[in-house]
Design a protein around this nucleic acid. Structure first.
Lengths: 190, 190, 190, 190
DNA sequence: CATGAATGAGATTTCATTCAT
DNA sequence: GATGAATGAAATCTCATTCAT
C-alpha cells in the first residue's frame, strides 16, 4: 500500500464514522481500526484530530466543486446555469450521503463557523458560484439582496431536501429535483 | 433561590454553553459551575445529560411556537399569514440567538433526527404551520410539492439568514426581513 | 408514628435492601425512601451508615440468640442440646432469609472481622453456646480441638445449607435438617 | 516489562486490594496505582471492573483446582482421597490468604451466586471432587444426603478454619489440619 | 516509517452527609 | 424533631495523543 493510499483510507474511514455516528462516535482508535492502520499512524498524516476533520472538509468541498463543474453550461444563460447548478448539487448530495452528513456535522462545530466566515469574506479566488451570482446581480436578474441571503434562498432548501431524501422522509425523483430547483429560482429571480 | 429558579438556572447555563461551544464544550461540571450549583444538583432535576438536552429542546421549541402565535392574523389570507409567520420566525431567531444555535446543535445529534422524524410523520396534533400549509396546498396556492419540500423552501433560508445575522455576516433590517420572506413566498407560491 | 417505630422502620428497610442488593445496592436515600422517612432523619438515629449497619447486625444477632433459646432443653444432655440448637439455628436462618443474607454481607466487611475477633476473645459474658461447648469439651464429649474449630464444624455447614435452601439449590425438610445437624454432631463428638 | 507481566501485575494488585479492603476499598484508580500503571491501562486488558473481578476469580479457582490435584492419590480409597483433598485444601487456603479472602468477597456478590448456581447444576465436565463424592455415595460410604449438603459438611468447616487461621484466631498445625479434616470425614461418612 | 500499548486528564454519574427551613 | 434539596468528593470509564520498539 502506498503512502497516498494510506492517507486516503484514513480519510474515508473518518468520513464514514463521523457521518454515521457524529463527532462523538468517531474516536481516533476507531478510525484507525476501520482504516486498518495503527492509531499512531494517523498522526504521521495529520497533526491532530481537528486537522484531520478540517482536511476532510476541504476534500469533500473540493469534490463538491468538481461535481458542480461537470457539464456546466458556461455559455448558457444565468437561469440555465442556475438550474443546472442546483440540480447537480442535489444529485451530488444524494449520491454522497456520507459527505452531506459530514458537512452538516462540520458546520455545527466551532471551526465550521470560522470556515464559513472566511469563505464569505476571505480573499479566496472567486469561485464559479460567486461569479454566477455576481453576474446575476449586476444584470439585475436577481433580487437586490445581500449575497448571503441569495445563497440561503438558493442552497438552503436544496441541502434540506437532500437530507430529507437521505433520511427517507421524501423520495426525490429527477422531476421533483427540477421542480424544487425551479422553486429556488423563483425565490431569487427578480 | 427557589426550586424553580434553580432548575431554570441550570437550563439557562446549559443552553448558553451548548449554544456557544457545542455539546463537546458543555461538560456537566461546567454547566454546574456556570449555574452556580453543585455538580450533583443537576441530577436532582434531570436523569442524565441526554434528558437535560432533550428537555431544553422541548422548552426552546415551545417558546418558539408561542412566539409564532403572537399577533398571528388568523383571518388573513394565506399570503398574509405566511409572510407574518416568516417575519416573526426570523425576528424570534434573531432575538434568541442562543436558542437558534442550540437547536442547530441538537438537530445534528442522533435524537435530533428521531425527533424530526416523529414530527413529520407522527400523530401530533396538527400545529398551526401544518394547517396553513395544508390549506395553501388544497387551494392550489402553493406548488404541488411534498410538505417537507415546501417546508424546506419556506424555512430553510430563513434559518440560514438568521444565523448569518447572528454571526454578523449580514445585518437584517426589518425591510430586509420582509424582502427575504417575500422571496420565500415566491418560491412556494404557484 | 412513634419515635421507636420510626427507628424500627429504618432498620427493617436497610436490612431488606442490604440483604437483597448488597451494601452497594443500599444507598442511604433508598433506605430512607423505603422506610418512608426523610434522608436526614436517619442521621437522627444513627451517626453514619456504618453505625446503622453495625446496629442492625447487633439486632439480628440478638433475635438470633433469642430464637436459639426458644424451647432450649437446659436440663437435657449435651447431645440433646446440640441437636436442638442446630435444628433451631437452621430453621431460624431459613425463616429469616433476609437476616441470613445480611449477616453474610456483614461478615465480609472490614468491621465484620473486627466483630468476630471481639466475639471470640472479648470479655463478653459467656453466652449459651460457649457454655455448651465448654461443658462438652470438659466432659470429653467433644473432640479435643480449639473452640473456633468446633464452631466451624458445628455451624459452618448449617449456615451453608441454609443458604443453599434459600437459594433453592436444595429443599430442606425437617427430616433433612435433623440429618444434617446429626452429621455435624458426628463431626464434633469424640 | 512484558505485556503478560502487566496484566499479571494488575490482577495481583486488584486481588490484594479486594482481599484486604473489600470491593468498596478497591477503586480502579487505587488498583492502577498499586499496579504502577495508568488508570486507563486496566481497560486495555479488561472490559470493565466486573470483568476484572470475574477473571481474577477464574484464575484463583484454577490455581485452586491445580493445587487440589497435586499428589492426589487416584488409586487410594475414598477415605484416603477425601482426607488428602481436605488437607490440601486447607494448606492451599492458608498458603494463599489473599485468594481466600478474595473468594469470600466474591461469593457474596450478585455474580457470585450466579456462578455457584452454574457450578452446582451446570453441564460442566465433572470435576474431580464431584467424581469422588458420586463414587462415595454410590458405594454407600457417605450418608444419603444431597450433594450440596455433603459439600457443606466437608468444605464449609475447612474454609472457616482456614480463615480463622489467617486472621490468627487459631494456629493450624499439620496435626490440627488432619484432625479437622478427620472430623469432616466423620460428618459425611455413614 | 509504522505501530499500538500506555497514558492521564477529563467526562458522566453516584451517594453519604449536611443544614436551612 | 423532621425534612429533603444541595453538595462535592470520589467512582467508573473514555479517548486524543505520545513514544519505545
Amino acid at each position: 500500500m502506498e503512502k497516498c493510499d494510506k492517507k486516503e483510507t484514513i480519510i474515508q474511514a473518518a468520513l464514514e464514522l463521523v457521518a454515521e455516528h457524529g463527532f462523538h462516535g468517531a474516536p481516533m482508535a476507531m478510525i484507525a481500526e476501520k482504516a486498518g492502520v495503527g492509531a499512531g499512524t494517523i498522526y504521521r498524516y495529520f497533526d491532530c484530530k481537528d486537522t484531520l476533520i478540517m482536511e476532510i472538509y476541504g476534500i469533500v468541498e473540493e469534490r463538491f466543486v468538481t461535481a458542480l463543474m461537470e457539464g456546466y453550461p458556461e455559455k448558457g444563460s444565468v437561469r440555465e446555469r442556475f438550474l443546472h447548478m442546483g440540480a447537480v448539487l442535489v444529485r451530488h448530495l444524494i449520491a454522497a450521503p456520507l459527505e452531506l452528513r459530514f458537512v452538516e456535522q462540520f458546520h455545527n462545530s466551532p471551526y465550521g463557523v470560522a470556515h464559513r466566515r472566511e469563505k464569505l469574506f476571505g480573499e479566496r479566488e472567486k469561485d464559479i458560484i460567486r461569479e454566477l451570482f455576481d453576474e446575476a446581480k449586476q444584470q439585475q436578474i436577481f433580487k437586490d439582496l445581500d449575497l448571503p441571503i441569495l445563497f440561503a434562498l438558493s442552497f438552503g432548501p436544496l441541502v434540506d431536501v437532500s437530507r430529507d431524501h437521505i433520511l427517507k422522509f421524501i423520495n426525490l425523483t429527477d422531476q421533483l429535483i427540477e421542480q424544487t430547483v425551479g422553486a429556488c429560482w423563483d425565490a431569487v429571480r427578480r
